[in-house]
């Protein structure tokens, strides 16, 4: 990483952390408390942006999987797996914060409503994606199987989104918010999206480094050529 990139990267993470802290302060100090549910409704300002970013991460895996099937380039597979890892993390946050909120608002940790069920299926699909990959030894075959799986797994995302509109569910199909609440919600999308994009980018960089390292280990001659293009270094 060159110095300029490093500085941009550091500034990005500092801005994300600052905006995240500002969002938390805004939620608890400025936004009015909802009359029916009380303080626990404040979970919503993180729950919804994280849920939308889970879909975004799944979409990136889907696009990268199509990219791999089209071009058969390793970079697409690296992007797909990086995004899938972040999708699992974000989906875990959505499920956990939802359960905590549900326990307070509905008096139960879990209920088998369509949206909750499809969300759990989404989490399981992407966990399975990550569990299956190491069991396939050939790098090309692993990338190919993952790409096909990445395309199929994405089919659950529209089901999660549309389930409340198509089937009776414990979640409301539309949300009415006071202007301050709406503003806070919109603001919260900024740090959460920056964090999700930053995590995918960081994971992707690491994945590329690991892939290149493994490729060099498989073929040390390419390493020598890459390290010593002029032939005068040893």
């Amino acid at each position: 990483m060159n110095t300029v990139n490093k500085k941009v990267w550091t500034a990005y993470w500092l801005a994300t952390a600052a905006l995240f802290a500002a969002a938390v302060v805004m939620i608890f100090a400025w936004t009015p408390t909802e009359a029916t549910m009380g303080t626990v409704q404040k979970v919503f300002y993180l729950h919804l942006p994280v849920a939308i970013n889970t879909f975004l991460a799944c979409l990136i895996t889907f696009i990268a999987s199509i990219g791999y099937l089209w071009q058969r380039r390793q970079v697409w597979d690296d992007l797909a797996v990086s995004s899938a890892k972040v999708a699992v993390l974000l989906c875990s946050v959505v499920l956990l914060t939802g359960m905590i909120w549900g326990h307070s608002a509905w008096g139960q940790w879990w209920t088998w409503s369509p949206r909750l069920t499809f969300s759990l299926v989404l989490w399981l699909l992407y966990v399975a994606y990550l569990v299956i990959r190491p069991s396939i030894e050939s790098r090309q075959r692993r990338a190919l199987v993952s790409a096909v799986y990445g395309v199929v797994a994405f089919l659950d995302v529209p089901l999660v989104y549309l389930s409340v509109k198509l089937m009776p569910d414990i979640h409301p199909s539309s949300i009415g918010l006071a202007p301050e609440m709406k503003m806070t919600l919109l603001f919260c999308f900024l740090p959460v999206t920056m964090l999700a994009v930053g995590l995918i980018a960081a994971r992707y960089r690491l994945q590329r480094a690991e892939t290149l390292s493994m490729q060099q280990a498989d073929d040390p001659s390419s390493n020598m050529i890459a390290a010593n293009p002029a032939g005068g270094f040893t």
Partner: peptide, 21 residues
Amino acid sequence: SPTTHAIAAYAVTILLLWGYA
């Protein structure tokens, strides 16, 4: 209490996301 639930949810989110970072 609802406040404890809210704090727990925020703690989980911050720990998981920033912990992963």
